[in-house]
Computed example of a mutant assay.
Amino acid sequence: MRNKSIKYTEYIWDFDGTLFDTYPVMVKAFQEALKESGVIEKPEVLLHSMKKSIIETIHSFQSRYQLGELFFERYLEIRQSYSLDEQPPYSDAMKVCNQIVQQCGRNFIVSHRESPSLFALLDYYEMRQFFTEIVTGDHGFERKPSPEAYNYLIKKYQLKKGLSLAIGDRILDIQAGRAAGIKTVFIRSNDGLECDFADFRIDSLKEVLSL
């Protein structure tokens, strides 16, 4: 029987910036790729743009500075050169995901990140076992804010929408969850982004358990 201390049973997580603190490496890798092309940009500017949409950020810089199609590949190469130790989970991520499983809930991930790097991080920090299914960019679903990946999980696992949460740190995550018809949780960070239309807004992962 499910422990009554958690109201929701299904937790659909974003990955970068939600479960794992990967944005510092992503921003540094983007800066390095730009610098190789003779472009200098402040990290705070890149972070603000990447938190809205990484793909749109890449396309914007490619168009503005005529960087070419190989720029994205170079960015990925540089990002992958950073150690896994530099891309840890947030302090409460493992504890929260484990507690959800212990209380008979289920965790899922919907991310645009490619499978090899996402699974490498989960395995390195021994967190893969907490997730029922992990949807990555390699699955071929439409990118958020499309709800396609969320609808796939809802249908496959017969998730009850009233007991499901979509959790993320970007407006795209909230838009996708709302479009799928489930409750949404926006995780605030120190980047100044807000999302007034999320069902819940929290400042730390552990607050998810009290919703």
Rank of each mutant, 00 (worst) to 15 (best):
V45N: 12
V45D: 14
L47G: 12
H48K: 08
S49V: 09
M50I: 13
M50D: 10
K51H: 14
K51P: 12
S53C: 04
S53K: 03
I54H: 15
I54Y: 15
I55N: 10
I55Q: 08
I55F: 11
T57N: 01
I58D: 00
I58M: 03
I58E: 01
H59V: 05
H59R: 06
F61I: 00
F61E: 01
Q62P: 02
S63E: 14
S63F: 06
Y65S: 05
Q66A: 06
Q66E: 10
G68I: 00
G68C: 02
G68A: 02
E69G: 03
L70T: 08
F71W: 01
F72T: 04
F72V: 03
F72K: 04
E73R: 07
Y75T: 00
E77C: 01
E77V: 01
I78E: 03
I78V: 06
R79L: 06
R79P: 03
Y82T: 09
Y82R: 09
Y82F: 15
Y82G: 10
L84G: 12
L84M: 11
D85I: 15
D85M: 15
E86S: 13
E86G: 07
Q87I: 11
P88K: 13
P88N: 14
P88A: 10
P89F: 11
Y90N: 14
S91E: 09
S91T: 08
S91R: 07
D92I: 10
D92N: 15
